[in-house]
Design a binder for these strands. Structure first.
Lengths: 211, 211
DNA sequence: TTCCGATTTGACCAACCGGTCAAATCAACG
DNA sequence: CGTTGATTTGACCGGTTGGTCAAATCGGAA
């Protein structure tokens, strides 16, 4: 048993040289591109490897399997994905807090469309690998935010809306511009959709949420 | 050359006995289930065949390839999918016409979630097979409806909204309940989302569109 | 019943794909 | 240098999958 040292995924915090980190990073980069384009099953190790500039066995030296790459990607994704939710301040101005959330989510669609599509792919196909996170962490965060929103409504600082369906609306409206990008551009004649999207969504949510 | 008569996809309108139509129907039914669950690449002919109650070669007797099944499915889908758009009456009451459209789209998400997911899968992965339809038929219909909506706005019977982004909003908000079903149910603790969704979307669009 | 085309199927194939392995190469350090 | 462990790779493997084919079976008309 000689090699395999780079794949110390379990164990207590393997050293992880700078080079190792860089190669793993490159693999995740390539994996994100390929998985988001083709879905888990549509992606091939050969394509990921060539996209990352490695041979297939070399890739498998850093991650033990296709699954491992995909799961590392999902784990990393969820962190940054749920972040904007945390940034909502229960002490702030309700309408502006929620509009800020919408704006941040829309920016993420514009700046990280591959991440959005990876997530969409996973969910559309039944979320076989992240169901626990949805039922645990995500639901917990939504429940907490729902209470904040209901408080705002009770104080009369927000129009009465179902908090959970409000969340669904924010998610679907913003992620649509990343996930359905080709359709959006086909309809808009390939113009950049984002300036228009931002003013439209600002109008929509302001109208919906202002008491 | 004996068989192959059932696969007369080209040629001038093959006879198509009742039995043939029934079997093709069963294949499309099974294909819809499998493709919408697994995406094009994730679906296997074996699974489609067994789901349809046929052997694999028998399936290939009716459709010449996996591609052919998928394309037949997409073609059939687009018909019924764009239908609700046609049902919008330029002579009707603007807000009510658009709310009716929203309601019909939401019903389609509830009643035909597999179709919605099939479509979502295709678009998320870059719409490699229906791009022409998006740029042709779909864009034409949206352009026409956009003019109607702009007319309504000019008459002061509708709040000023970007017509195309309004369409995106309707599509994303309604299809979200089919495409992201597992996420929605995870957040809502598996309750039926549709009653709440309907009242929420009615409120949202009434607020947005009422002048 | 006989016949003929339509339908069905078991056996098979070639390509692809995830993953393994032993050997080669590299790089740092004494 | 030479040694040692980390890294890289070509060759290979077994399972899966889309698709083929020749033979068998079916079903209705004469």
């Amino acid at each position: 048993m000689i090699g395999k040292s780079a794949s110390g995924q379990s164990g207590k915090a393997a050293p992880q040289t700078r080079i190792q980190r860089a190669k793993r990073e490159a693999i995740l980069e390539a994996g994100l591109t390929v998985f988001s384009e083709a879905g888990f099953r549509g992606a091939t190790l050969d394509r990921i490897a060539s996209e990352a500039g490695l041979s297939k066995p070399n890739l498998l030296y850093y991650y033990p399997s296709k699954e491992a790459i995909y799961e590392a990607l999902l784990r990393g994704l969820l962190e940054t994905w749920l972040d904007p939710l945390q940034a909502i301040d229960p002490m702030g101005e309700p309408v502006e807090e929620l509009l800020g959330y919408v704006r941040r989510k829309l920016q993420m669609s514009r700046d990280f469309p591959r991440q959005s599509r990876l997530f969409a792919n996973e969910i559309v196909q039944g979320a076989p690998r992240i169901m626990p996170v949805l039922e645990g962490e995500l639901r917990g965060m939504v429940d907490r935010l729902a209470m904040v929103i209901e408080g705002w409504i009770a104080e009369g600082r927000l129009a009465p809306v179902d908090p959970r369906h409000l969340m669904f609306s924010v998610w679907s409206l913003t992620q649509h511009y990343a996930d359905f990008d080709v359709q959006v551009r086909a309809v808009l004649n390939a113009d950049d959709p984002y300036p228009g999207a931002e003013t439209h969504l600002e109008l929509l949510f302001r109208r919906l949420l202002t008491p």
